[in-house]
Design a protein around this nucleic acid. Structure first.
Length: 424
DNA sequence: TCTGGGGTCCTAGGACCC
DNA sequence: TCTGGGGTCCTAGGACCC
């Protein structure tokens, strides 16, 4: 019989910040999205103050000041590294691990006897906490959807000690009626509304609805959720991430951009990052879409936005070619007299590097390009991102750059930002 | 004044073909 | 007045996830 565990870090980004500053242990902590825009992680103390997921920071700033909330910009270097440490532990504990997101992993628990699963969960939590300082919760079930649900139960019911096992149908009968249908994995706001109209309000109601009706109203995705809630596994553990299909680099500006020069600098910087990402995944693209738009929240200034797809002569991951394409697209969209709030580059239909069709009369020297990109990546890997960039790319100290005014040190990935310890 | 970024999957409907 | 049938492919948009 298959069994899954879903392990996730509690208020993960906040917990990462707490690991390196013990003074935060009892204070409310929040972490903001890019550009210091919205609250995307909150500790229980912060939630208790009424800070919601996605609340814009400018609306809660006062509340935060009054309550000594510790506020951080996102520090992805730190969170990514802590995430890798958690997964290294999971791999010692399970034969197969699927990394589902930066703070959630599914573990294959099929070989753990049912009676030992509670203990297993408790021991895993304790180990992770001891080795990394990160608090976690463990949800266990015969399907991924039930493991997710169990994890939620463990989170919301402190008396369970951070572990919940829904392998036993009797346990499911106990908990599923207490869970709102909108809290089931895969049920978003649109489906929740439809289900409410049918009188389906809890996870138990959803489990018991006819599969045909589920399919009719919520496509095959909804039908699968119903089956999974009944304990019929429709989703397997995906150990190897499937090849990615698209790749995007998009950013809000720290200050609105109104000049073409600045816009070209910005999209060049985004294209540069996009090309690096492609090469890291050994992929290429044959076309690139640029977009820009003014703020959707600002009703006073005139609004403008648009996107433009630029085709390359042949598939490529060459920084210079992608920058050229991005600048070309941006010039076609940009108009004077607007305050642009965001721009980005998007690439889809990615193909493995070198697998594309070659033109009969190539416009460029592929080998030369590849050698140059290898050298570029090597320099930047040793001396840090942005050490060597093509001229005309805005990479350092520009007004429009995304804000990270409250970022903590990158304790675990930068030698010059190591935490300091003092003994007296 | 200040509101994130990056993905996946599914379906409907249009274009096109014979 | 009556005006075929059945495919495939592509894209846009919706829905969902963290």
């Amino acid at each position: 019989m298959k069994a899954f565990a879903l392990v996730d870090g509690n208020s993960f980004y906040c917990s990462c910040e707490r690991v390196f500053d013990p003074k935060l242990a009892t204070r409310p902590v929040i972490v903001l999205s890019n550009n210091d825009g919205c609250a995307v992680a909150r500790t229980s103390e912060a939630k208790a103050l009424g800070i919601g997921m996605g609340d814009p920071y400018f609306k809660i700033r006062e509340l935060c000041d009054q309550n000594r909330v510790a506020v951080f910009s996102s520090n992805y270097s730190l969170y990514g590294d802590m995430s890798a440490r958690l997964n290294a532990i999971y791999r010692q504990w399970a034969p197969e691990v699927e990394i589902y997101s930066i703070d959630e992993s599914f573990l294959d628990l099929s070989l753990i006897p049912e009676r030992d699963r509670q203990t297993y969960g408790r021991d895993l939590r304790a180990t992770v906490h001891q080795w990394t300082g990160i608090p976690t919760c463990v949800g266990i079930g015969p399907t991924k959807t039930l493991a997710k649900l169990a994890n939620r139960v463990a989170k919301k019911n402190e008396e369970l000690g951070g572990v919940c096992d829904l392998t036993d149908p009797a346990e499911r009968d106990k908990w599923l009626p207490r869970i709102d249908v909108g809290d089931v994995w895969g049920v978003g706001p649109a489906s929740e509304r439809k289900l409410f109209e049918l009188g389906i309000e809890t996870a138990a109601d959803l489990r018991d609805m006819p599969t045909r009706l589920a399919r009719q109203r919520m496509t095959v995705v909804g039908e699968r959720t119903v089956l999974e809630l009944r304990g019929i596994a429709c989703m397997a553990l995906e150990e190897l991430p499937p090849q990615r299909k698209g790749c995007a680099v998009t950013r809000s500006f720290g200050k609105p951009v109104s000049t073409l020069d600045e816009m070209l600098e910005a999209v060049s910087a985004h294209a540069l990052r996009a090309a690096e990402k492609l090469r890291r995944h050994k992929l290429e693209t044959s076309h690139l879409t640029v977009f820009m738009h003014t703020s959707p929240f600002n009703r006073r200034d005139p609004a403008h936005g648009g996107s433009k797809t630029v085709h390359l002569p042949e598939a490529s991951a060459d920084t210079f070619e992608l920058i050229e394409a991005a600048r070309c697209g941006a010039q076609a969209i940009f108009r004077e007299g607007y305050r642009y709030a965001k721009a980005g580059v998007i690439m889809d239909d990615l193909i493995p590097a070198g697998s594309g069709i070659r033109p009969l009369f190539p416009a460029r020297d592929r080998d030369k390009s590849e050698r140059l990109m290898t050298a570029l990546d090597a320099v930047n890997a040793v001396f840090g991102r942005g050490t060597m960039v093509p001229a005309g790319v805005g990479i350092n100290k520009r007004e429009w750059q995304t804000k990270f005014d409250r970022r903590s040190p990158r304790y675990t990935t930068r030698l010059d930002e190591l935490p300091h310890a003092m003994a007296t």
